[in-house]
């Protein structure tokens, strides 16, 4: 089973959320436990001040230099960034982390963001869905603008790259027009991992077409299983392998919920309720230590969780192949 750990630094309590050293210690702990990825978001609910001084993408860049294996995923909003800028930021994070970066996009619109990004009226639900779909297509397209073998580095011949292996996007759509290409080279893992969350029923086809990982909120076991099956059917219907999209179900961690947790996770996984779990860290971060020290070794003994990372990139951890034509 796959494991993500989600940390909203804006509402974390204790030192871990507020200093680079504290967050580094937490992420290294997750890395030592062979967690596949951490997902960092940075916005508090309402207009509460953040408990952390950091923004997620800049924090992930810093974490990339002090970790070696763990995947590093940052939440970033489609309202706060233009698609070209966002694609660049994450392509660069992927280069900095040697292929361990991912983008956590939400398809839910945050009113507060719109109000701070010169969109006081926001978008209608329909417009926002079409805009999100267009946005994802642009970012994925930009990430594939350079072939993996485009850079020649031929000093004596004077050929830095092969112009045939650099591709314009030339996107002209309803909300954006983006010529491309990106000015960041091809990702070491083909492209950053796309992690979608905040999905409503009407977003599932968009997610099935584009996502590498889908994060779902926690429901009753039967419902989890039905949703998982539904998503995999939609993935197949798009002409993708069902295994090309990993579905992780949220698990809220509290000191009280640790008892019997390994059994519950095993049951959910074996009944095909999901491909793994997204451990949502509680406000009190120390509970994660108990999870890593008690629950994960238990799952490992049962043969349900990896002893080692499978490779060096986030895609390899998740068992995903490359994102497209190289």
């Amino acid at each position: 089973m796959l494991f993500a750990v989600s940390l909203n630094i804006a509402s974390a309590q204790g030192q871990a959320g507020t200093t680079p050293a504290g967050i580094t210690a937490l992420v290294r702990k997750a890395e030592a436990a062979h967690i596949d990825m951490v997902v960092i978001s940075d916005s508090a609910a309402g207009s509460e001040p953040s408990t952390s001084p950091f923004e997620a993408t800049t924090l992930v860049a810093a974490l990339a230099t002090v970790t070696e294996k763990i995947g590093l995923v940052a939440r970033a909003s489609t309202i706060a960034h233009q698609p070209y800028n966002l694609a660049r930021r994450f392509a660069s994070l992927d280069m900095i982390s040697h292929g361990r970066a991912g983008w956590n996009a939400t398809l839910a619109q945050a009113a507060r963001e719109a109000a701070n990004f010169s969109r006081p009226d926001g978008f209608s639900a329909d417009d926002f869905r079409r805009r999100s779909q267009e946005y994802l297509g642009i970012v994925l397209g930009l990430w594939q603008g350079w072939d993996a073998d485009a850079l020649l580095f031929d000093k004596s011949g004077g050929r830095f790259h092969d112009p045939e292996k650099m591709h314009l996007l030339d996107h002209k759509g309803e909300f954006f027009s983006v010529r491309g290409p990106l000015n960041v080279a091809r990702s070491p893992q083909d492209r950053p991992v796309l992690v979608l969350a905040g999905l409503s029923e009407g977003d599932l086809d968009i997610a099935a077409r584009n996502a590498d990982v889908i994060l779902l909120d926690e429901r009753q076991a039967a419902e989890n299983k039905a949703r998982h099956g539904d998503i995999k059917r939609r993935v197949s219907a798009c002409g993708r392998e069902p295994g090309a999209v990993k579905v992780l179900t949220d698990v809220s961690l509290t000191a009280a919920s640790l008892g019997g947790l390994a059994d519950r996770l095993e049951e959910a996984f074996r009944s095909k309720g999901c491909d793994g779990f997204n451990i949502r860290l509680p406000a009190q971060l120390s509970v994660f230590d108990d999870f890593a020290d008690r629950i994960l070794p238990d799952l490992r003994r049962r043969g349900l969780f990896q002893e080692h990372y499978r490779g060096t990139t986030l895609r390899s951890h998740l068992g995903l192949t490359g994102g497209g034509n190289q």
């Binding site: 860049a61 660069s92 830095f160 790259h161 092969d162 000015n183 080279a185």
Partner: peptide, 29 residues
Amino acid sequence: AAGLREANVGIASQTSRSIGFEPISLLSA
């Protein structure tokens, strides 16, 4: 710059300036 430095791809391919890090992530690292 949020784009290539040189529109002519033949020229651009003879320089090293079409690819690089995005600077805010670079400086954060």
